[in-house]
Simulated assay, not measured.
Amino acid sequence: MDKGIYIKIDNEQLFEKVKRAVIQLIKQLTEIGKDRLPPESDLAASLGVSRTVIRDVLADLESKGFISRKRGIGTIINKHVLEADVRLDIDQEIKDILLQKGYEPKIEVINFEKLLADEKVAKLLKINPNEEILQVETVIYADGNPAVHIIDKIPLKLISAPYDIRDFEGSIFEFMKEKCSNQIESDLSQVKPAKADAHLAAIFQMEEGDLLLFLDEIGYSAGNEPILWSQEYFHPEIFDFKVFRRKL
């Protein structure tokens, strides 16, 4: 392993902390012009873990396209994939994406309120019409400029603990993990362009009819129950979505 590169691991779950350490190493090696990771045995010794853990981490990173492992060549760093900062095929927090892009993110909670589900909401979340939901509206800023507008809808019956406005200053997934009886295990998203109406135009400081990137997303529990409907509007000058696909 290159001298001068040291990686510390704290007391979090082993797989996740080793993966973060390897991603950090990949970025450091890329910055100094290296295109390959050290052998598994060297990584294991450097991080103080077994080769089995290293293999599992490398398999995960390979599935996400960050590396390619070739027999007789080694573990190649896919710099072009590493540079894709907004990936639709992997889970990324919006605040983390903005930080990676060099922005300072800030979340503003515009409103949160209890509403009665209309027929569309009821159908998407598989609840009864007029059943209560919680709707949360937030804007995420990048260096003070509006970057993302989000409307989240959750069946009220899932919320099992008291909450206030501060609970929505993180991600909705954190809120559901801490305050709800069910958590998001998977989601299905549709991406399409959307024209800014008067409300969105005012938020994004643009003209009505200007185009935004729209992510229409349903979050599912471990039992495949729809428990979250998110409507996310992204400023196209800040976000450029990419998808990694491996050819078989």
Score class of each variant (00 low, 15 high):
213 L>W: 02
66 F>A: 02
248 L>A: 13
148 V>F: 00
86 V>G: 03
27 K>E: 12
87 R>L: 11
145 N>K: 15
156 L>V: 00
64 K>N: 14
9 I>Q: 11
185 E>M: 11
232 E>F: 04
154 I>A: 05
29 L>C: 05
99 L>A: 12
34 K>E: 14
124 L>T: 10
125 L>I: 12
90 I>A: 05
178 E>D: 13
122 A>P: 02
211 L>A: 10
110 I>Y: 10
13 Q>M: 11
147 A>N: 07
17 K>Y: 01
35 D>S: 14
79 K>I: 15
243 V>K: 00
74 G>A: 13
85 D>F: 15
122 A>V: 12
150 I>Y: 04
226 P>L: 06
154 I>H: 10
233 Y>D: 05
105 P>Y: 00
13 Q>Y: 05
82 L>C: 14
75 T>W: 02
63 S>I: 01
141 Y>F: 15
196 A>V: 03
179 K>A: 07
9 I>T: 15
211 L>K: 14
86 V>E: 11
78 N>T: 02
165 I>F: 06
6 Y>F: 05
236 P>G: 00
72 G>L: 01
241 F>Y: 00
20 R>I: 12
17 K>S: 05
216 D>Q: 07
236 P>F: 06
184 I>Q: 01
142 A>T: 02
73 I>S: 04
156 L>Y: 05
110 I>D: 06
140 I>L: 14
204 F>I: 09
63 S>M: 01
161 A>H: 11
150 I>K: 02
33 G>R: 07
148 V>T: 00
229 W>G: 06
227 I>L: 09
